[in-house]
């Protein structure tokens, strides 16, 4: 299978702090990968580097054979990378369906003046988008909430809406930043089914950052472990569970936390 995302010696420094240090890996087109590591290991920074919010101090990010160097964050989305955020970033004062419609923004076929004069083309395209959005909302069981303001949804639903919004951009690679954070066990179980479903139905690669080890071990086919910005291990769940360095990193973190 072909590689969709390739990181080559990516390093990200902020002043004297090295948040990501010489990380290289390959993601295949249909992979379901988890990135784990203690807090502050550089996981979210890695996401920010992939999505163009930061440009790496050195090394390169190659998506679909294209080097993402100097490509704006908004264009990265158009190329086919979508993400969710650790601290949910919905358009809180817009309705649920408008949140999704916005994600279709780059795929809209009508022009500015079509919108102003409300031409036939505008109406047809908007109808099409509305239907697509509703379909997506149905998948996430949010269709009955479509006219709610996003801020009025329950926390778990907000996380789901953010995922739906990311999907609506039509990505080939989806990055999920702690999708299960703040969810109860039932919701987490649903989430794991949903992630599988998305990957198969939309045929894409998924990378997730997650602290819920049960979820990670259950759904990830491959796991990358970051510690202090370094990629210290990679492999399937079983290999990772028995990796000495990983155990050290995590035990170390636990000892620190208990002090």
């Amino acid at each position: 299978m072909s590689s969709i995302l390739k990181l080559q010696n990516v390093t990200m420094k902020f002043g004297g702090l090295t948040a990501v240090n010489d990380v290289s890996f390959d993601i295949l087109a249909h992979d379901l990968v988890a990135i784990i590591g203690p807090n502050g290991a550089g996981k979210t920074t890695l996401f920010n580097t992939i999505t163009g919010i930061y440009s790496p101090t050195s090394g390169s990010v190659i998506f679909n054979q294209k080097d993402l160097k100097n490509i704006k964050s908004s264009d990265v989305t158009e190329l086919g990378i979508a993400r969710t955020f650790q601290n949910i970033r919905l358009f809180k004062d817009l309705t649920v369906i408008d949140n999704i419609k916005l994600a279709k923004h780059t795929r809209i076929q009508y022009g500015f003046w079509d919108g102003i004069f409300r031409t036939k083309k505008f109406h047809l395209e908007e109808k099409k988008i509305e239907d697509e959005c509703l379909l997506l909302l149905k998948l996430f069981k949010l269709d009955d909430k479509k006219d709610f303001l996003a801020k009025n949804l329950a926390y778990g639903q907000q996380r789901k809406l953010e995922m739906a919004r990311a999907l609506a951009t039509g990505p080939k690679l989806l990055l999920l930043d702690e999708p299960a954070a703040g969810m109860n066990p039932t919701e987490t179980r649903e989430l794991s089914e949903l992630i599988h479903l998305i990957r198969d139905q939309f045929n894409m690669a998924i990378i997730l950052i997650e602290h819920d080890m049960k979820l990670v071990m259950e759904i990830a086919e491959k796991i990358f472990v970051l510690d202090y910005g370094n990629l210290i291990a990679s492999g399937n769940p079983k290999e990772i569970q028995n990796n000495k360095r990983v155990i050290e990193a995590y035990l170390g973190a636990e000892i620190e936390a208990s002090l």
Partner: peptide
């Protein structure tokens, strides 16, 4: 219109808006 939605999304959250393309 889609154009207007894009503008309004900037008011709501710039980073998320950029992330939507």
């Amino acid at each position: 219109s889609s154009f207007g939605r894009a503008i309004i999304s900037i008011r709501e959250d710039e980073i998320a808006s950029e992330n939507m393309g």
